[in-house]
Simulated assay, not measured.
Amino acid sequence: MLSALIQKFDKLGNELLLAVRRGDEDEINRVDAQLQPLTRRIFEFEASDYNEIMAQIAFFNRLAMKNCEDDSSVRRYTAMMSTLFVRYLEPKDGPKPVAAKRELPPLFEGYDPSLQELVLDSLEERVAAFDLDYRYIYCNQRNAEFHNKRPSDFIGKHLLDMIDQKRFLTRAKPRIDQCFGGARISYTYEAADAHGRLFEINCRMTPLTGPDQAIAGAVLILNMQPMFARTA
């Protein structure tokens, strides 16, 4: 079912592109009127297995990357990814159902972020999540600020895009791989933020699992204690 919805979206997307190239306003309006409710159906879809979860998250990651020059679109799609991430992270026997009486946010520019995202962004800790390819699927505001970036700058990016190769190979990757194997990891290290301020950082890694308990990635929670300013 999800695959069929995504295929239909891609087909309509191609039709929209052709209509734009022809300058056919009537066709553009016709196709665009179908795309928004279809996007909502894909968002509301309740994945039943690991593959569907990854396909659903990847769909909105693709939209965020495709619209990377439009900040409002990136915010919208990354907020939707965040909601999916929290939905499937919760330890349930199956995917978390959407409450019948819950009013879902409409698809328009600048809509309010999900409650889950607000909660994660209000934490003092930095929070990030990676898929099995070491690519970001979530980044909270605190983690983005540490790097002097926006949360949307991280989505779909490889960890190597944020840290140097030596740190990735010697410190991050071995521990993340252990986490992918089911281990819960905790370790402490020192690092400077984008402004040169030095912190002692405790990093806790937890496997990210889907409803079928298959490991889909890793969740990182980083608690920071300031040390002293880096000298030139």
Rank of each mutant, 00 (worst) to 15 (best):
S3L: 08
Q7M: 09
R21D: 06
R21E: 12
E25N: 12
R30S: 07
V31F: 01
V31G: 02
L38Q: 01
L38S: 00
M54I: 15
M54Y: 01
Q56N: 08
Q56K: 13
A58I: 00
F59D: 01
F60H: 06
L63K: 06
K66D: 05
N67C: 08
D70Y: 11
D70A: 07
S72Q: 15
V74N: 11
R76S: 04
Y77L: 01
T78Y: 00
S82I: 00
K92P: 00
V98M: 13
V98F: 13
E103H: 15
E103C: 14
E109L: 08
D112K: 06
D112Q: 13
P113R: 11
Q116H: 12
L118D: 08
V119P: 01
V119Y: 11
D121T: 04
L123F: 07
L123P: 02
R126D: 10
L132P: 00
Y134P: 04
I137P: 01
C139L: 06
A144G: 08
A144E: 04
F146P: 11
N148Y: 08
D153Q: 04
I155C: 05
H158A: 06
L159S: 12
L160N: 08
M162V: 06
I163E: 09
F168W: 07
F168N: 09
A172V: 15
I176V: 14
C179M: 15
C179G: 03
F180I: 05
G196Q: 07
G196W: 04
L198E: 09
T206H: 14
L208N: 07
L208P: 03
G210V: 06
A214S: 12
I215Q: 10
G217A: 05
G217T: 03
L220Q: 10
L220D: 04
L222P: 00
N223S: 13
M227C: 05
R230F: 12
